[in-house]
Design a protein around this nucleic acid. Structure first.
Lengths: 102, 102
DNA sequence: GCTTCACATAGAAAAATGTCAATATACTTC
DNA sequence: GAAGTATATTGACATTTTTCTATGTGAAGC
């Protein structure tokens, strides 16, 4: 995976408000309006953060009528963890794996 | 762990040049001047990135005479992986663990 | 239809970050 | 101690990111 894409994944986790949002989603799927109640930003700012989280694949949104429900993407979280593991693994621990290309 | 500290850890991984640096360190400890040869930034910029990586605990520096040798911190990498795991784990999977406080 | 509600988008301002040139520091060698 | 080398720090500037207000969109209910 190229550097740009890796950086985009971890950008999801490098803002305090996005960390708060992810923590809130650990207890399960939540509507945007519920998240808005709990973190101290305006609605457009929340929307901006949700876009970054969804683009990074860490969170998925599900529209239902007027509402959008967000939840942690297990697949996305798994991918981020694998990415971090390979990124920090010494080459000797990771020989012949395409994921560890330079 | 509070949001600010978590964000600081993942800031290490959200810049393309820092990803490149980490990838270079997978093959083992390297001198700053060696890293400088391989990535396309000036010496002060490299120094800036190394500080961020070290402050996040992902990389450790070892001074030896005029040189500074950097390497991936296995402890720091492990901590980042654990942090990511707990952050994205559903509450039900993580009951009674202090790491999962909101 | 019109209104209301939930969310997204546009655009601008402010804050944070990445980058460089210049300079400082700290070590080695002569 | 003077000169050279490796790295860190400072200060300025450009870019990116975060945040807001204002406005647009799309669904539900009247």
């Amino acid at each position: 995976m190229d550097e740009r894409k890796i950086a985009a994944i971890f950008k999801a986790f490098c803002d305090e408000n996005r960390i708060k949002i992810i923590k809130l989603l650990r207890s399960g799927e939540k509507c945007a309006c519920k998240l808005l109640d709990e973190i101290n930003v305006t609605q457009p700012t929340l929307s901006h953060h949700m876009k970054i989280l969804c683009d990074a694949g860490i969170v998925v949104g599900r529209k239902e009528g007027k509402w959008t429900y967000y939840s942690i993407s297990e697949k996305g979280a798994e991918q981020a963890k694998e990415c971090l593991t390979h990124l920090t693994a010494l080459d000797v621990e990771c020989e012949n794996k395409s994921c560890c290309e330079k």
